[in-house]
């Protein structure tokens, strides 16, 4: 099947259907604050892929092992509206993986100052990041990570008087201090490329998602796809991801 694919043929020749270089991302569009019922939100368009991330906040009880910290919950919904391949029902493996990889990029970069979300010994803020796929055009994890982090940077903490939350009124910005960016590097044969389209994604040998913080720390890694990666190649994967994460960060925040 792979061999009969148009994208496969082109990639072999060093080309892509949309004329991009191997290390080019598709056109990225980012809007924040697009959902007024949410505490923070972002819409990301990356080529044909469109994702909306919304942040909602509630007051909850802290987890017993982190009594002085807020709670972060990241969820992804691959709604049947977004692709003929998505079905309704419980979240698929891919949706769960997407949510968990995005979650790690945020959590491990210490992007949110979780200690500042403690209210009193019994109460903390719970931050829910919901990722909604609107159209699946490939590279969901990178786009979802951008949407989630952008929505967090856009988020405000609702007004809370110790008993009740007043929705629509805010007391402060959500303390978000880092800018993690995830880049998935794909391999087909000897070639490495980024930001796969749906067609390209279906034929890659292997994929590695790498989250970088602005101070060059790696904060999360996840190998996807069935193919393996040589030890020698890993260096190249990391190099490409680091470079592209810097480019993306510039595009998103400058």
């Amino acid at each position: 099947m792979k061999e009969t694919s148009y994208a496969f043929d082109l990639l072999q020749k060093g080309k892509r259907a949309d004329d991009r270089e191997f290390e080019d991302f598709r056109k990225l569009e980012l809007q924040t604050g697009i959902i007024n019922t949410a505490e923070g939100s972002a819409r990301v368009k990356l080529g044909d892929t469109e994702i909306i991330a919304g942040v909602k906040m509630n007051v909850g009880t802290p987890f017993p092992d982190t009594p002085n910290e807020g709670i972060l919950i990241v969820n992804a919904e691959f709604t049947p509206l977004a692709s003929p391949d998505f079905e309704s029902g419980p979240p698929s493996e891919d949706a769960v993986e997407c949510a968990r990889v995005v979650d790690r990029g945020i959590r491990e970069s210490h992007c949110i100052e979780m200690e500042k979300l403690a209210i009193d010994p019994e109460k903390v803020w719970a931050v829910f990041v919901d990722i909604h796929i609107i159209n699946h055009g490939g590279n969901l994890i990178d786009a979802a990570a951008i949407a989630a982090v952008a929505a967090l940077h856009n988020a405000q903490i609702p007004k809370y008087d110790g008993e009740k939350i007043t929705r629509g009124e805010y007391q402060a910005k959500l303390p978000v201090v880092h800018k993690p960016v995830t880049v998935t590097v794909c391999k087909l044969g000897e070639k490495l490329f980024v930001d796969p389209t749906l067609e390209e994604e279906q034929i890659v040998d292997s994929k590695l998602s790498i989250a970088f913080r602005e101070d060059d720390y790696i904060c999360a890694l996840q190998k996807q796809s069935a193919g393996s990666i040589n030890f020698e190649e890993i260096k190249k994967f990391i190099e490409v991801a680091e470079k592209k994460s810097k480019d993306l960060r510039k595009k998103i925040w400058e």
């Binding site: 491990e108 970069s109 590695l208 790696i218 990666i229 030890f231 890993i234």
Partner: peptide
């Protein structure tokens, strides 16, 4: 390498 996952800094 057939599995690679990391979290942390």
């Amino acid at each position: 390498i057939s599995l690679l996952q990391m979290d942390g800094l």
